[in-house]
């Protein structure tokens, strides 16, 4: 087995890097690919809570790099999905505790043990970002349909190319089909037109992302969720499958409307 290393980054914070990492990782592992998710956001650890593994952390990324534990000891096994692991970030250290070479060495050691390594990059364009993309075979840039996020994505795309890691692929997250339809939100065509990059995922806004995060269960494991299905599609596309983009329907179906009435939380 030789793992492929995929880094998920954005430039702007809060657009869904951690959610995407947890869900793409879970979707890949759920179909039988051994997957390791790495939280590269040293000092601002979050992937552990999104995956619901925060109570199992003993060792972290910096412990491995500084030789305080074996790689295997820092890999936390997921509760639900077999073959899914998390290497958490250190919470009490900063980005300078890790170098790009450290990340390359760590991933090289992991490669023979799994099929996919998914790295959650910190926001920004400094050291943490460079650490996260150093070992990447493929970089996924995630953005929201907002000017600020798309602008930062454009900058990141340029930096990734300058580092010889391009061309990346784009995930557009938190799309509201109703708003796009009535002309009040940038659509995928508008964004792809200015960024000139290949699209790998189109994820609709979904309340279930929040309820899933509340419970520490990736939404990709929820068959009935529209964002979960979009994340599963991204995993299949990564795996080389030609998955068409389903049209984002602005209409709320009758069943979903009834479901919303019965369960206002959308859970």
């Amino acid at each position: 087995m030789t793992a492929k290393v995929v880094t998920i980054t954005s430039g702007k914070g809060g657009v869904g890097k951690t959610t995407a990492t947890a869900n793409i990782g879970a979707a890949l592992a759920a179909v039988g690919h051994p997957t390791v998710c790495i939280d590269a956001d040293i000092g601002l650890r979050n992937l552990d809570v999104v995956m619901g593994l925060e109570n199992r952390i003993v060792y972290d990324l910096v412990d491995v790099i500084e030789g305080r534990c074996k790689l295997r000891q820092a890999m936390i096994k997921d509760k639900r999905v077999a073959d899914l692991y998390l290497i958490p970030a250190a919470q009490t250290r900063d980005k300078t505790s890790v170098s790009p070479q450290d990340m390359i060495r760590l991933c090289d050691e992991l490669r023979s043990h799994c099929a996919w390594i998914i790295i959650d990059s910190p926001a920004g364009i400094e050291r943490g970002f460079r650490n996260a993309i150093a070992p990447a075979d493929l970089v996924l840039i995630i953005t929201n349909p907002e000017i600020s996020a798309v602008r930062d994505a454009d900058r990141i795309i340029g930096l990734i190319e300058a580092e010889g890691k391009g061309p990346g692929k784009l995930i557009i997250n938190r799309v509201k089909p109703e708003m796009v339809k009535r002309g009040d939100m940038l659509g995928e065509d508008d964004i792809l037109d200015v960024l000139a990059i290949e699209l790998i995922g189109l994820v609709p806004e979904d309340d279930r992302v929040i309820t899933a995060a509340n419970q520490g269960t990736p939404v990709a494991l929820d068959d009935g969720s529209r964002s979960g299905s979009a994340f599963r599609d991204i995993a299949r596309r990564l795996d080389g499958e030609d998955v068409p983009f389903p049209p984002l329907d602005g209409q709320v179906g009758l069943l979903e409307r009834i479901a919303r009435l019965v369960r206002p939380g959308g859970e």
Partner: peptide
């Protein structure tokens, strides 16, 4: 104008200057 159209124009302009 619908706001997406305004967003598109502003985005194009800001990217031209950024790049």
């Amino acid at each position: 104008r619908r706001s997406a159209q305004t967003a598109r124009k502003r985005l194009q302009l800001v990217l031209i200057h950024d790049r």
